[in-house]
Design a protein around this nucleic acid. Structure first.
Length: 951
RNA sequence: AGGACUAUAGCUCAGUUGGUUAGAGCGCUACCUUGACAUGGUAGAGGUCGGCGAUUCGAAUUCGCCUAGUCCUACCA
């Protein structure tokens, strides 16, 4: 073994071995345990959030595999419709200046597939580097033909049941991407905007009660006024009673529109008069439906002003009666330019009453980043309300559990108020909607044109054309848990592994994905009793990985970290290139450069996969966001090095030696019995923490045991045995056997979190430990043997540690060199102390670095000494020539003061009658015991201090 | 506006059913190249647990209010 831990030397080769030997695939034996990976974007790359989730998933699946389960971790990617199409469009524009329309649909699709081939390996490469034990033999992609068939089947059966329908509705329209998007893809942002108060003149000489021949409406979107089809006032508003039913003449356009009464108009807000534009505002749309108002769409799909509006009736049918005139100067004008013009024209007419500053929230597309436009279009919708019902029940009755539980509330609040889901997208990259239209626009839903003819009995004289649109990516992702396993085909895999056990994902996609997967699975999959099948039993929600100052990592902020850079390291130059290259907002580059140079002046050194995984596990307290801390990563790399060197020590002392592999007789030292005892407790704790999704506690438990107990104490305690020429072969064999066996167990315990280093070490010591097997991956997870718990040994080691630490404390405080071997006297010891001293003299001499230990009997004269207490027993280090009187007095004072504080605190407690009367007996007794101990210690130290001070 | 979460050492975080001398890592101080490891060892320093109040014999832990921050939902003519 190398002297220092070199992760790069071991990681890739072990992964290759595991994969080649197909260890990741289900074993086919034992109880099933399954998980599906949240499918990442096929052309994307993994960020820290993925690394975090993948570490959790891999730890769970490796743990379950070692528990003997038949484990499946289903892997795959999704096609990420909008994101991928955008990238390829941008690439195309940059390379050839062409748009997708220049190429045409088929040729453009070829370009996307090329891009997928080119960049699609990224993710899977990263996953291999992260050590993820996914079942590569069953890798899936949402655009694979088989998956495509599942998507079509789902769509068609939902349509046939009436749960999918098509309609002309107002939807969220992204004018940049020119597609509809769902509510969830809209992000609200606070913005300082303006409110314009516009005068609308009353027609036919009508006046208001106040005598005005106009009314004033307030609006944040003047440019939509071309599409106004009414002005609403509240029926109860005394100011406008007399004009309800009258008309106004819409400025700039000249159209007469009615003044209607509707509760939507709030008397307290604005002027009490609201312009109603049903084709461009969700509230107005509802008003329009209630009041049967016509709708006029005045915007193009790129959100420019149309040359003439499109008129519709409130039911969505064409209305050719209504005047849709738009003044020529506005034709094809961009929406915000049009806004300025409308305001200017109103001002010129004297119709602009005032402008107010207005704080408001504006909807932006989460992908395109431009303001979303409510747009009247034909779209496909899924009846989410109906689909949601059973999923709510499943969470209510505990069939599906969220960890942490508070996310259930979030889930409920959303599901109980769910809106129909717009599932069509005006994109090319995705699953094309399996719907066909005849010349009259009548729709036929089937997998293909010929299937449609057959299903609907259509003759060849009828021409059919397929719907141009594709499905929302989340529609296909919603099928992920079961379509990856072959649904609609009923097969063994589905039967064995569905429902899956655990889903690990982030809270940000609970609605996008988790809820949709629940809806789809419960509607489309039924168990043998016909009961809706849930997709997973537990949803483990992780927090976000943020940067060191708590900010979200994002490309625009330039604070993104690639998990592989943490593993393999990266130079500052390369990191800068990564962060500032190919930016959407190049103006940020300078700021990012400065920040990166400051934080990573020397780039990032390599830490290895195991250290990264251990860090992520150690930070994974459930549901909490993680602020990434590079120092912590360094600490855990050092931990790996520690393990590595401990293993070297073990190997050096056991290789070629008799370690009792064949069950030879051994004699176990106190330390041997103690470490074995401790190990049992650790085995219980770690398994419990993993089962409870507390990987942070599991990691902490392992860290503490390995570093502080095994390395810190046990390895040191093994030296006096192994290096003692007087030790018997039985004793040496006992210690060697314990050394190597405990290490072997530690490796198995730690393997789910740190797969590589544990495999490497396990391989090199397995024979010494008397075990065989091809890989640690396939070994069983350690299980505690309660018969090995030895409380007497633990108590005796505590005593031993007390004496050693006592001497070391004197040494440290008094500045005595560790090289100086000390003489120690033991005073006021009990019979038990005497016995323990006799039994452990060898350990004490070595670990406390002593020259001599002398047991003082009652009446024996003790020299002036520095004192440490172990219980009632005094550990004395003679001061002569070594220790300064004043230093010792001040050391004692420090101790005495500490005890004084504690004694005062407990005295207060015990002096409180209510405490003594009400607290449980055991608690009171414990306090009494404590204070007695503190008092006797304090007395001894005071006595000692007086003696020394008197010198 | 409604809801959720968070606030513990200089920093990043633990603290399970109320009873601990409130812990870990990093950082800090002093000393140490002792035959696994300086990516190390030994000994230390450092916290009135965001604030106020309540319940209790006893609160970091339970409850209420407040402050700060993060997030979600809704509304904004």
């Amino acid at each position: 073994m190398d002297k220092t831990y070199q992760p790069a030397n071991i990681e890739t080769s072990w992964y290759q071995t595991w994969e080649d030997k197909n260890y990741f695939a289900p074993s086919g034996e034992g109880e099933a345990y399954s998980m599906v990976i949240p499918p990442p974007n096929v052309t994307g790359s993994l960020h820290m959030g993925h690394a975090f989730q993948h570490t959790i998933m891999d730890t769970l699946v490796r743990y379950q595999r070692m528990q003997g389960k038949n484990t499946l971790w289903q892997v795959g990617t999704d096609h990420a419709g909008i994101a991928t199409q955008m990238i390829v469009e941008r690439k195309l524009a940059a390379e050839t200046g062409q748009t997708k329309h220049d190429l045409g649909r088929d040729a453009f699709m070829d370009k996307i597939w090329e891009w997928k081939e080119e960049s699609g390996g990224n993710i899977t490469r990263q996953m291999r580097r992260l050590g993820n034990s996914v079942d590569w033999s069953n890798e899936r992609f949402t655009m694979d033909p088989k998956f495509q068939a599942s998507v079509e089947e789902a769509f068609i059966s939902l349509y046939d049941e009436g749960l999918i329908y098509r309609g002309k509705r107002l939807v969220n329209w992204d004018p940049k991407l020119q597609t509809a998007i769902s509510d969830l893809e809209v992000e609200s942002k606070e913005i300082k905007g303006k409110m314009w108060y516009l005068r609308y003149p009353l027609a036919d000489g009508v006046t208001t009660d106040a005598g005005d021949d106009y009314i004033v409406v307030a609006t944040t979107r003047p440019e939509t006024m071309f599409g106004d089809t009414a002005v609403a006032v509240n029926a109860a508003d005394p100011r406008f009673q007399s004009i309800i039913g009258k008309e106004i003449i819409l400025p700039l356009v000249g159209r007469r529109i009615p003044i209607i009464a509707d509760d939507h108009a709030n008397m307290e807000k604005g002027t009490g008069c609201v312009k109603i534009t049903p084709a461009h505002d969700f509230n107005d749309y509802e008003v329009g439906k209630r009041r049967k108002l016509p709708m006029i769409n005045v915007l193009t799909f790129t959100a420019d002003i149309r040359e003439i509006g499109q008129g519709f009736n409130s039911d969505g049918t064409l209305n050719s009666e209504i005047n849709c005139h738009i003044p020529e100067k506005y034709h094809n004008m961009e929406r915000f330019a049009a806004r300025r013009e409308v305001v200017a024209d109103f001002e010129a007419l004297g119709f602009l009453v005032k402008i107010e500053e207005n704080n408001m929230t504006i909807p932006y597309g989460d992908r395109g980043g431009v303001v979303i436009e409510p747009m009247l279009t034909d779209q496909w919708f899924a009846d989410a309300k109906t689909l949601a019902g059973p999923t709510i029940e499943a969470v209510e009755n505990g069939d599906i559990k969220f960890v942490p539980k508070q996310y259930e509330n979030m889930f409920f609040s959303w599901m109980r108020d769910i809106q129909d889901w717009c599932i069509s997208r005006q994109l090319w990259w995705g699953h094309r909607i399996p719907a066909f239209y005849d010349a009259q626009g009548k729709v036929y839903v089937a997998t293909s044109e010929s299937a449609a003819r057959e299903k609907y009995n259509l003759g060849t004289e009828i021409t059919l054309t397929q719907d141009n649109d594709v499905l929302d990516t989340w529609f296909s992702s919603g099928l992920w848990s079961f379509a990856t396993m072959g649904w609609p085909e009923q097969n063994d895999k589905l039967e064995t592994f569905h429902p899956t056990d655990t889903l690990v994902t982030g809270f940000d996609i609970i609605f996008f994905w988790v809820a949709r997967m629940m809806m789809m699975s419960m509607h489309l999959c039924k168990d043998k009793q016909g009961k809706p099948q849930i997709p997973f039993k537990t949803v483990y929600i992780t927090g976000l990985v943020r940067d060191e100052s708590g900010e979200k990592m994002s490309k625009t902020k330039g604070n993104v970290l690639d998990p592989l850079d943490m593993i393999d390291g990266i130079s500052l130059e390369d990191l800068l290139a990564k962060r500032t290259g190919n930016m959407m907002q190049p103006q940020m580059a300078e700021k990012i450069r400065k920040r990166t140079e400051k934080e990573y002046a020397d780039g990032i050194p390599a830490h290895g996969t195991d250290a990264l995984r251990f860090t992520l596990a150690a930070l994974a307290s459930t549901g909490r966001d993680i602020n990434w801390d590079m120092k912590r990563l360094e600490g855990y790399r050092n931990f790996c090095n520690k393990i590595w060197n401990a293993a070297r020590y073990v190997e050096m002392n056991t290789a070629g030696e008799d370690c009792g592999q064949n069950g030879e007789e051994v004699e176990l030292s106190l330390a041997d019995r103690w470490i074995s005892s401790k190990l049992q407790q650790i085995e219980i704790d770690v398994a419990k923490h993993i089962e409870e999704y507390r990987l942070d506690l599991a990691a902490q438990t392992l860290y503490d045991f390995i570093w502080n107990e095994y390395c810190g104490w046990y390895l040191e305690l093994s030296k006096p045995v192994l290096w003692n020429e007087e030790a018997t072969e039985l004793q040496k064999r006992g210690t060697r056997r314990t050394l190597v066996r405990v290490l072997e167990v530690i490796m198995r315990l730690t393997h789910p979190i740190m797969p590589f280093i544990t495999e490497e070490i396990w391989q090199s010591i397995k024979t010494l430990a008397g075990v065989s097997g091809d890989s640690i991956m396939l070994q069983s997870y350690p299980k505690a043997d309660l018969s090995k718990i030895d409380l007497a040994a633990e108590a005796e080691i505590d005593w031993l540690k007390g004496v050693i630490t006592g001497v070391r404390n004197i040494r440290g405080e008094m500045g005595i060199s560790p090289a100086k071997e000390l003489t120690v006297l033991i005073n006021n010891g009990s019979d038990e102390d005497k016995q323990r001293l006799a039994a452990n003299r060898n350990f004490l001499m070595k670990l406390a670095s002593l020259e001599q230990i002398t047991w003082l009997n009652p009446g024996d004269e003790a020299p002036m000494s520095s004192t440490q207490l172990v219980g009632k027993m005094e550990v004395l280090v003679p001061m002569a020539g070594l220790i300064d009187k004043d230093a010792e007095v001040s050391r004692l004072n420090k101790e005495i003061e500490k005890l004084e504080k504690e004694i005062g605190r407990i005295e207060g407690k015990l002096g409180n009658q209510k405490f003594v009367a009400n607290a449980p007996e055991a608690v009171v007794a414990k306090e009494r015991e404590k204070i007695a101990g503190f008092k006797s210690s304090q007395e001894k130290l005071i006595e000692q201090r007086e003696k020394i001070a008197a010198l």
